[in-house]
Design a protein around this nucleic acid. Sequence first.
RNA 1: GUGGUUGUAGCUCAGCUGGUUAGAGCACCGGGUUGUGGUUCCGGGGGUCGUGGGUUCGAACCCCAUCAUCCACCCCA
Length: 454
Amino acid sequence: MSKPSIPKGTRDFLPATMVKRNYIFSTIKKSFIKFGFLPIETPCMENTSTLMGKYGEEGDKLIFKILNSGDFLSKVDEQSLSEKNSNGILSQISEKALRYDLTVPFARFVVQNQNEIAFPFKRYQIQPVWRADRPQKGRYREFYQCDADVVGSDALIYEVELVQLFDEVLSNLGIKDFTIKINNRKILSGIAEITGMSDKIIDITVAIDKLDKIGAEGVIKELREKEIPDSAIDKIKPLFELKGNNSEIIEVMKRMLSNSEMGMKGIEELEYVFEKINLLGLENAILEFDVTLARGLNYYTGAIFEVKANNVSIGSICGGGRYDDLTGIFGLKGISGVGISFGADRIYDVVEELQLFPSFSSETTQLLLINFGEDENKSLQILNQFRKSNINTELYPTDAKLKKQMSYADAKNIPYVLFLGEEELKSGSFNMKNMVSGEQTQMNIIEIIEKLKP
RNA sequence: GUGGUUGUAGCUCAGCUGGUUAGAGCACCGGGUUGUGGUUCCGGGGGUCGUGGGUUCGAACCCCAUCAUCCACCCCA
């Protein structure tokens, strides 16, 4: 018999891990609620057609497709089947797929439920997503995203708000040193425009995004491979040497993009965000204009965000941006949206690496009642009494040997045990042992409740 | 999808140049102890050495294939 296992890139979570994961989720959720976002959920699977084509060519490959039920092959047309054409038969054998992110399903949700929601609609959503990627450090095939998006308004105050949200959540998790990188797709469009390569904007942005990784030489090499002429590359080159603080870089970009209306609009939007953030201040985050930031999905049209924890070996932990026409794909035009996503699993890895998790001892059992096989009714009543006083309590199920019962308390880190022996049950005075100090005291039920009450 | 790494007990790993019955620590179970855990002592269960083939008198060890794993690239949270 083969050992049981789980699919590549997926994980089991033990109780000790879940307690910490829940802490991250609840910290994020608390801030989402504070900023006025409302919860929604969508199904883990969507129609394949809803997802395909929304994430670029690479994205399509990374979507998990779900096979149709029944004898699906018999319905495939002979020709595609004999040609062994995977893409050709895909739509015939799979009409459902696991969601790849929360944004596209949300766009679908907005279009479908447009008459039942009030715009601007601020929603948050904390659910798992699946990607058929090769797993590696900090990369899983099943992971949680925690999204907050606003649709139905193009007001820039939301960009400001989302920067504050990044700052608040990560600060509340105890992370002190992190950078929120911000850019604007209109600036990237402006760059493509002044080089006369507007149609190559994706190739250009993907290449310059890699600047800090492969260096100027590498970027130039990649641009050439994408058939960007040297004359255009020369115009892009100044980006590789940008230095200074945010406002200095903005000034340089203003000069560079002065002939691009689109580019100047992007600068203007960016300046607004900086101005308001300067007014309001940030707790721990460093907000940094990064012209090379281009990651993200093809649908961003305005602001682009990415958050990186400094001095940890984990990639970006949050992302986001504005997408003017996301719902347009599903038939609802003119609805602008802006949103961000917290990668809970990576944030977990960061908080773990930085040893920032608090202790969660109060969330586990506080008191174990040691079972001597005496008056069971009385024992159950005592158990009830503790629970009604909000003390996390359990009764050992059998009168097993003391060693076994105490070991159980030990394994679960239960700080107190109470001996429900014959004498105690009769007299009402119980022997309670502190499992940390080893100290034992005689107390009645009322006194114990008083002592352990949260 | 591309390149590399590693597969030995539930977990972490040792195992010499190919040599007889494959080991340790931790974990688990039982006992020393029928009202005292974590410390300690004694004992126990547990392995098709990832899988299939090849070389050899003989393979955990060498060769080939395959699967899995982790790391990196692409891309991304």
